[in-house]
């Protein structure tokens, strides 16, 4: 009932607008006027700006995802073209029976959650340090954010060297503390955490920038009020300031999780090949390996759809949240 009234109002407005324009120009039926009447007065004229790019994105993103879903239902392998006449879910049942797939899914999940949490924590710490009225603020901020401007391919080279067994900085520091060397890349139980550490190094600056914007948006009175109440600095941040960073935390988390899902470039470059170190295989690396090294196109597409659904599970609620707050 309410909805009907609303639409009625909307179209009423539009008709008035459209009518005026139309009367001045031509009489009789015109598809342009009809479209404008339906969608709003500028619809047709503005479409020259947004429609071609939108179609390009529609084709390359959404068209490709639907196509990918179709391929995942075929048995397409090797060279040639997929046969779309026989569609079934065979590739998905194969994935569930493949221990490599299950391991990769688990690793993806661990990397996603672990990386996001440690990066948020470090980023928040950095933002608070930077926000304490320090000198050379710009210099500190610029250097903390610097790794973010580097390619995964470049940072993978640095960290391959940092984690080197004999001469890497990490093992040198550890042995100087009297501990034994650790095989960071070679040990399947450790490598995922090493990768997480390297990714944290690269993206903590990003979390810092987001949190810093959030901190700067909090009115000074909130700090003052907490001081007057006699709260310690720790208490003030914990009770008063950090709860107000909810928005920053949510948007930073979503972006970080998407970065973690994309960690393919880093793992590929770490070893210079499709096969990441044992214990560090994630869905992104498995998908590309199945497709481009093993030519199992249909199976790779099924892995890709799994990854896509995981992303949708994270991004969907976020976009809905932003939409409801009118931020879209």
């Amino acid at each position: 009932m309410t909805r009907n009234t609303d639409t009625g109002d909307d179209s009423g407005d539009a008709v008035t607008d459209g009518g005026v324009a139309e009367d001045g120009q031509r009489s009789g039926f015109s598809p342009v006027a009809a479209l404008n009447e339906r969608f709003g007065s500028d619809f047709v004229e503005s479409s020259q700006f947004w429609l071609p790019p939108f179609l390009l994105v529609g084709l390359f993103v959404y068209g490709a995802i639907i196509w990918n879903l179709l391929i995942s239902l075929t048995d397409f392998t090797g060279f040639g073209t997929p046969d779309y006449s026989d569609l079934d879910l065979q590739m998905y049942s194969r994935a569930l029976a493949d221990s490599g797939f299950v391991d990769a899914a688990i690793n993806t999940f661990i990397l996603l959650v672990g990386f996001t949490l440690v990066t948020l924590a470090l980023g928040l710490g950095l933002a608070i340090l930077i926000d304490r009225n320090i000198r050379f603020e710009n210099t500190f901020r610029t250097i903390y954010l610097l790794p973010m401007s580097l390619s995964f391919v470049v940072t993978a080279q640095f960290w391959a060297w940092m984690f080197n067994f004999n001469n890497g900085v990490i093992n040198i520091v550890i042995t100087s503390l009297g501990l034994g060397r650790v095989d960071w890349i070679g040990n399947p139980d450790i490598v995922l955490w090493a990768v997480m550490f390297a990714l944290m190094w690269q993206f903590a600056g990003y979390a810092m920038v987001v949190f810093l914007a959030g901190l700067r948006a909090i009115p000074n009175e909130h700090y003052e009020a907490a001081k007057v109440d006699g709260a310690s600095t720790v208490r003030m941040y914990w009770r008063v300031i950090i709860p107000q960073l909810k928005g920053s935390t949510i948007s930073a988390s979503v972006v970080l999780m998407v970065f973690a899902l994309k960690a393919f470039d880093f793992l590929y470059s770490l070893v210079g090949g499709y096969r990441p170190p044992n214990g560090a295989d994630i869905l992104a690396t498995k998908m590309v390996r199945e497709a481009y090294a093993n030519l199992n196109w249909a199976y790779a597409s099924a892995v890709a759809i799994t990854l896509f659904v995981m992303t949708l599970g994270i991004v969907g609620p976020y976009l809905y949240y932003q939409y409801n707050r009118g931020n879209l």
Binding site: D10, A14, D17, N36, F39, G40, S41, D42, F43, S46, W50, F54, V57, G58, F60, V61, Y62, G63, A64, I65, W67, N68, I71, V254, V258, L261, K262, F264, L283, A284, M287, V288, A291, W297, A300, S301, V303, A304, I305, L307, F308, T311, I314, V315, L319, Q322, Y323, L328
Partner: peptide, 28 residues
Amino acid sequence: NWKQKYKAPVLALLVAGVFIPYQAVLVP
């Protein structure tokens, strides 16, 4: 000026495009 009701899905599809994992489009 065109209706927010119709703009919103176009915008939503574009914004969602930022977060797509590229693995999901590689084979196509």
